[in-house]
């Protein structure tokens, strides 16, 4: 079981120190682990940032990498999860030509089928937003494809753990 490769989500809380991101990325590359998605940003606590990384690895490898990350002085905490242990989302934005979308008359159904939203619409193009898992945003993309996709981008994963404890005790 320790040698089975799975997708792990690593949740890292850090002090806002320049250079930390590259050092964290380095922990993965040095162990030949690829970073599948990466999301970073400030938390609600002043000075504390969070980095969410997904990576395919064995439990042994991810455990080793996360311990090395946690060892960095400016890392407050680092934890890894399999997907069942977290609630997570990715965000996809999709730009399509407005005429094609409107002519088809399928827009209502598209939005309701995928729980997607219109962020912006003008005579030239429409920007649609879809949140979900990778599989859901992919399915969304497939449905929009016939209208001629101008641009499709996807964020990395953001996640919270499925337990009722505060994530970072030292900063409560």
């Amino acid at each position: 079981m320790d040698n089975e490769i799975r997708t792990y989500t690593v949740l890292i809380y850090t002090e806002n120190q320049i250079g930390l991101l590259s050092q964290i990325a380095n922990v993965f590359t040095r162990r030949s682990l690829s970073i599948w998605t990466l999301t970073a940003g400030p938390t609600a606590i002043e000075g504390v940032h969070t980095i969410t990384i997904t990576s395919d690895a064995t439990r042994r490898k991810i455990d080793e990498a996360v311990k090395q990350i946690e060892k960095r002085v400016d890392v407050i905490s680092a934890t890894y999860y399999v997907s069942e242990e977290i609630v997570y989302r990715e965000l996809a934005l999709c730009k399509v030509p407005s005429p094609a979308l409107l002519e088809s008359g399928a827009i209502e159904k598209l939005l309701s089928d995928h729980h997607a939203r219109i962020l912006e619409m003008n005579p030239e193009f429409t920007v649609l937003q879809k949140t979900g898992t990778l599989r859901e945003t992919t399915a969304f993309y497939e449905s929009v494809k016939p209208f001629g996709v101008l641009q499709f981008v996807r964020s990395g994963r953001v996640a919270v753990s499925r337990d009722a404890e505060p994530e970072i005790k030292c900063c409560k």
């Binding site: 120190q17 320049i18 250079g19 590259s22 050092q23 380095n26 040095r30 960095r72 002085v73 400016d74």
Partner: peptide, 14 residues
Amino acid sequence: VTGMTGPITKWNYQ
């Protein structure tokens, strides 16, 4: 220097 020495130091700072 900070970029280069990140992985080979316990901590670095400019």
